[in-house]
Every structure is written in C-alpha cells, then in structure tokens.
C-alpha cells in the first residue's frame, strides 16, 4: 500500500504542472477562442530566461519575475500583433497560427542557448519534509498549492470581477460583445497576459521539477491540452482534476512493468477517451458560437 502512496505523491506534483498548463489554456480559450499550442514554448522560453538570469548572478526573485514577465511579453506580443488579425477566423486556423509561433520560439531558443547541460535550481528545492519516506520539497508543495489556488482564483476572477464578466461575455458571443461596447482588445490582452504569466510560472516550475530541456517543456503543452479537454476547454475545476489525474495515472503506470515504458501515452489516451465521451453528447469540442 505504501508504494502506491509514494507514486501518488510523485504523480500529484507532475499532475499539478499539467493542471497549471491546462488552466492557462482554458482561461485564454474562454476569452479569445484561441487554443494556444505555443503555451509550452512560451513556458520553455520563460524557464530559460529564469536560468539565464540566475546564471548571470541576479537575485532569485529578479530571475523568477523575469521568467513570468517573459511569459507575459511573449503571450501579449502574439495576442496583440497576430491574434487580433485572426479573431474572426476558424478555430483551427487560430490553433495552427499558435503552432507556428511555438516553432518560432523553439527555434529562437535553440539559436540563443546551445545544447549544454543546465539545471534550474530554486531555493525551495533545499527545504522539505518527509511523508511516507518520500522527501517532499517546498517546490513541489508550491506547484501543487499554486495549481489549486490558481484554479480557485481564476474561477472567482471570472465569476466575481468585471473583467471576468467581460471575458465570459466574449466567450459567449464575440460579435454581440463588440456591439454592446465591450473593449474587446483590452479584455483579450488581459487574457493573453494572464495566460502568459501562468505559462511563465509553469515553465519555471517545470524546469525545476522535471528538467530544463526546452523541447520537453515545449511539448508539455500536450498533457496540458489533455487536461484542458478533460474540462471541455471551459471548466477550470475539471481541468484541474484532469491534470492531476493524468499525472497520477502516469506515475502509477510505472508500477505495471509491461505498461511502464509507454506511460507517456497517458495524456493522449485520456484526451481520446474524454473526446469520445463528449462526442456521445453530440458536441463538437473546438467549435464556438463565433
């Protein structure tokens, strides 16, 4: 029984990163209609910037802030200069545009940083406690706590604030929102910035908890999308649960010897099963009223 608990704890940490990614995707999707495939690449660039500032000798908080600002800057850059021009295009066109942006960012990362071995270390890695003989670092607690708090915070933000209301209005019907005078560009920019900040934070956590590999972080968008699909690209709570479930299932499969080498398939399997379940209700996943 103890061994299951060990893998459960391990899976929750990675799952919370998937959940964080999924939440960032859902917030943006709800406000702008964009399924942002560049989310992982933005997270990768943010993680590399964090490492770079630490390597240059900047204080930790400055490096962490730069990581989040990088996420915001890249996300807002795409949102203001490219996304606005694609606002009336089909969801698939929007998604493919973000994929192109992801490739550009990944190319730039490879151009700027060579393939040398790097490690992102946060001070919270050194502090921890033991639970069932597994040492849990404060970084893992932060990742789990942050995903929970961010999910709750975002739900409240969208439900209780004026900007949240405007975002929901945009999600419901962009054309009608424009007609009644909602400042679409401003609201969308806020959504891009929020999503970018989440990508920056997720990238930093991922670079520390998993590994500082831009390609791996870029493709973190896949389990994040799987988590978002669990929430039907709408529900932040279900996205949070989906992310954690994928992480835990991936970790638990390690115990099944024949399946262990293929456990990275879990996000795809989960996404396919959820899509099939939703198809049962005759609903097209990526279609909005726009």
């Amino acid at each position: 029984m103890k061994i299951y608990a060990l893998f459960l704890i391990s899976g929750l940490a990675v799952g919370s990163l998937y959940a964080l990614g999924g939440i960032g995707l859902v917030v943006l999707r709800r406000a702008t209609g964009f399924l942002n495939f560049a989310y992982g690449a933005i997270a990768a660039a943010s993680a590399m910037i964090c490492w770079q500032f630490i390597d240059w000798g900047f204080a930790g908080p400055v490096s962490w802030l730069m990581s989040i600002l990088t996420g915001v800057a890249l996300s807002v850059f795409f949102g203001r200069f490219f996304a606005s021009g694609l606002a009336w295009r089909e969801p698939v066109v929007k998604a493919v545009a973000t994929l192109g942006f992801a490739l550009i960012i990944l190319g730039l990362i490879s151009f700027i940083w060579d393939d040398a071995a790097r490690k992102l270390v946060l001070p919270t890695d050194k502090i921890g406690f033991r639970l069932m003989e597994v040492r849990i670092t404060v970084t893992r607690v932060i990742a789990f706590g942050a995903s929970l708090l961010i999910a709750l915070g975002m739900i409240l933000y969208l439900e209780k604030t004026k900007t949240g209301l405007l975002m929901r209005a945009l999600a419901n019907n962009r054309a009608h929102s424009a007609l009644i005078g909602i400042p679409i560009l401003r609201v969308e920019t806020i959504a891009w910035a929020l999503s970018g900040a989440l990508a920056g934070f997720t990238g930093m956590m991922f670079g520390d908890l998993v590994r500082l590999d831009p390609t791996i972080i870029t493709f973190m968008v896949i389990p994040a999308i799987a988590a978002a699909i669990c929430g039907r690209l709408e529900s932040l709570f279900l996205t949070f649960i989906g992310g954690l479930s994928i992480g835990v299932a991936e970790a638990m499969l390690t115990l099944v010897k024949t399946a262990a080498p293929f456990r990275s398939l879990v996000p795809f399997v989960v996404a396919v099963l959820v899509i099939l379940w939703m198809q049962r209700k005759q609903r097209l996943v990526f279609q909005t009223e726009d």
Partner: peptide, 12 residues
C-alpha cells in the same frame, strides 16, 4: 527500467 524519451515524471 526503460522510459519514453519524452517522459517527464523522472521522480517515478
């Protein structure tokens, strides 16, 4: 102990 090259959960 073989793992997928894209596996992220190294703790497991």
């Amino acid at each position: 102990l073989l793992m997928d090259p894209s596996a992220v959960d190294l703790n497991s």
